[in-house]
């Protein structure tokens, strides 16, 4: 069975997650062997996931060490009943 780009991209996450049965996986790999656009798509999809994670694992991100004092007071007030 010939696999087209639309299907390849549609089930890309299952392919990457190792969730395809062996014969289906072989079809995906056969498609990759002849389709540079899908190779590029797959690589950029994986990069997308990685850069997404990295963008939030930012050591320079403004992480406040303390809450604004008015928020601390509002929380304490709300829990004192």
């Amino acid at each position: 069975m010939v696999l087209y780009c639309r299907e390849f991209v549609g089930f890309l996450d299952d392919y990457l997650g190792g969730k395809l049965p062996p014969e289906r996986r072989a079809e995906f790999e056969a498609h990759l062997a002849v389709c540079p656009p899908c190779v590029n798509y797959l690589k950029s999809y994986q990069q997308t996931v990685r850069v997404g994670k990295a963008a939030f694992a930012d050591p320079d991100a403004p992480v406040p060490s303390t809450l604004p004092e008015e928020l601390v007071q509002a929380i304490l007030k709300a829990t004192r009943g």
């Binding site: 639309r6 656009p37 590029n40 990685r50």
Partner: peptide, 22 residues
């Protein structure tokens, strides 16, 4: 995708490893 289920637009390789850029 087009009627033949191929990519409509060219899918280019990303020029720089996202890991380095990020």
């Amino acid at each position: 995708f087009d009627e033949a289920s191929h990519h409509v637009q060219e899918v280019q390789e990303w020029r720089e490893s996202g890991d380095a850029a990020v």
